[in-house]
Amino acid sequence: MVSNWSNLVARRDLLRELTLSELRTQREISRFGWVWWLVDPLIMMLIYWAVVVGIFGRGGQYAPYPVFILCAMLPWKHFTSSLTASSGVLRAREGLIKSLAFPTMALPLTLVFSRFSNFLFGTLALLAVVLVAGMPVGISMVQVPFLLFAQITLVTGLCLVVSCLGALIRDLHGFLGHLTRVGFYLSPTLYGIDIVIERSADLGAFWGVWLPRLYLLNPFAVLITGYRDSFFYGRFMDPELWILLVVQSSIALLAGYRTYQYFDRRVIKFL
């Protein structure tokens, strides 16, 4: 069955059952699966807090630093865990794909959805950390639902591309690990985009303008900035960045959908 929009709508019950069964499986393995999902970003938060603030004595302008990095760790974790799982999902479900007629796009989609619900628990944890740190929770929070929507759109698009490539390229999985590691440091996870703008300006007028623009081509730079503006700074994100984020996530989803449709009927022969 072709993975197009109308087939996915017709099989919306499958999307729901698959997402639920992902979550049930996780709950079956451990009662508080989403807590385990959170452990990783929380440990990373503690490590970077200890290294950057405790050892190097930096990060003063980003105090409280744990909140600052957690704003980045959580969406990043949703992205990387969905991406790695997507790269192997079609091969892992080979038997299923070859014996049942259903839009196979449901497989990568539900991976992203089920991890997204873990991420939602993560944002509650973030909110708790914000409150514990005694930071104000204000009107800037109204941005959060829109950021969540942009994030799921973006991650879905990227995962659709990667799920096809993963079926065709046998060593993609290992390669992705390196790629996301580089992506982590290229994204404003440990630092903010204000530093990127500052340092670029030091390089002269040309780089001062173009380097930040180049940097913001990374949609996660914009997304993380949005979460920080909402949870950390308590302000509204620059409207230009909002437009950029909408454009980036729409392109990602469209590209993912198109790529999947292109490979849809070819991929099964490569499994």
Binding site: R11, L14, R16, E17, S21, L100
Partner: peptide
């Protein structure tokens, strides 16, 4: 429930 959905049955 899961298999029913794979086979195209409504919930």
């Amino acid at each position: 429930l899961l298999n029913g959905a794979y086979l195209g049955m409504r919930r």
